[in-house]
Design a protein around this nucleic acid. Structure first.
Lengths: 243, 243
DNA sequence: CGCTATCTTGATATGAATCAATAGCTGTGG
DNA sequence: CCACAGCTATTGATTCATATCAAGATAGCG
């Protein structure tokens, strides 16, 4: 639901009723997608539609000519899909559901309208783009400058943090929601290596695995290992509401 | 000068005179920095100031506890520094000059003012944040899923493209403006390996080196190798000016 | 209940890091 | 204007992390 979007944004920036209504009215249609469905096809689709995740999980990915695939972003309920494609003629990456999902559709031109009528909405969206940016930076550092275990730890923590943003308190046990193959694509390793690193984390008593689910049993240790910062936690928007 | 900012944005989105004036008035003070100077200190500085690069080059970097350093972004004249830090209490990364540079300062609150009075400015800034995002994605794919040579090729092309945006036509010969150490930090390798890859590119007749400068002699080959897309070239902002 | 995707584990190959040493530059002060 | 100090670049030898190749083991699913 848009509730999630509003909850996510509203928790951080108190929105006025009319601002909330404007965001609510962005979306025109809601559609359901099965798990594993490609919602946006990179290099092909025209990015004139944006989506708000109402439920489910998705990921953005890029295919290289070599056949390799990179998974650049995870989407959770409340996230807006397609903003990074917006200024281009063709989508720069594909987006695929990794669970059954519901998406709210709206045309990108509506965003301009919203910006014009509600300047604070522009500021909110801009802020979240900046947040996005900070998160991508973190991932860049993680992948470029840390070893496999650390990268895996960071990814697990990122998923955990996003999960926590939706359902608090965190029950500690949660779905990664990705195959080891996909995890590998997300942290720049092979599935084989992911599997081994997973074992390493388990043996190091940092996590416990319950089938497809995971439990973080040594949060400080994992944070230390993965050098992870939860950017959502650290948000500070006082400067912005001051006016 | 703000000219560069306006040129960069204005080339892509025709700005009205009052919009141009608003951007021009963002900046209050201009300061000069020597090469190698740390302009923003990550984790320490309060990100209440933004900068527009008037001249010179800079880079954003993060230091890991291990001592490793990652270079996450390059800044050229016209770029705005500090936007990714904006929503946080402390800067998420450091910014350092890699040449003598002049920066225009302005408080981040001014941006909110500009957004409020000129909604289209908000849209322009938002669009550029999205562009940023796409570029970070590309880098993520490059570092996560391609080998050293390809990453180096991509970095060279990125610098070349940014250079071209300022001074066209590209004379083909340009400064990388980074030490091999810094290049390594940017593409997630050691200086030693960068040196070897540099030789590999030279021997493969993709580039020619003139002291500290570089000449791309086989652009298609380098683009193919580095899997590089110039996102600035591909920008499409018609949807945005329609209103 | 069998099929297919996913996970797991072992053996080997390879790209890149690390360690180490030398050579070029660049700037600075005597 | 030279000499020394300190970065930067270059190259070789060795080690290490991760990819690749290969083959079972599980598990979810129709």
């Amino acid at each position: 639901m848009v509730q999630d979007l509003l909850a996510k944004y509203g928790r951080l920036v108190p929105l006025r009723a009319d601002e909330e209504a404007t965001i609510r009215n962005l979306a025109t249609a809601k559609r359901t997608y099965a798990s594993g469905r490609e919602v946006i096809t990179g290099e092909l689709d025209e990015p004139d539609q944006l989506f708000i995740v109402a439920s489910g999980r998705l990921f953005a990915s890029v295919e290289l000519p070599s056949g390799a695939r990179a998974l650049t972003r995870l989407y959770f309920p409340g996230d807006i899909i397609g903003t990074a494609n917006m200024p281009f003629e063709r989508a720069t990456h594909s987006v695929t559901t990794s669970s059954d999902a519901e998406l709210l559709h709206f045309p990108r031109t509506k965003l301009v309208d919203a910006f014009t009528t509600m300047p604070r909405i522009a500021a909110v969206f801009y802020t979240f783009a900046a947040l996005e940016n900070a998160i991508l930076n973190d991932r860049l550092v993680s992948i470029g400058r840390t070893k496999g275990v650390a990268r895996l730890a960071a990814l697990i923590l990122e998923i955990c943090a996003r999960q926590r943003l939706l359902h608090r308190p965190p029950d500690g046990v949660f779905h990664l929601g990705l195959t080891q193959q996909q995890i590998g694509d997300a942290i720049g390793m092979t599935e084989v290596q992911v599997n081994r690193l997973m074992r390493e984390l388990t043996q190091g008593k940092l996590i416990v695995r319950h089938g497809r689910k995971i439990e973080v049993v040594d949060m400080p240790g994992l944070v230390e290992l993965g050098q992870f910062t939860d950017r959502y936690e650290a948000l500070d928007l006082d400067w912005f509401t001051e006016d």
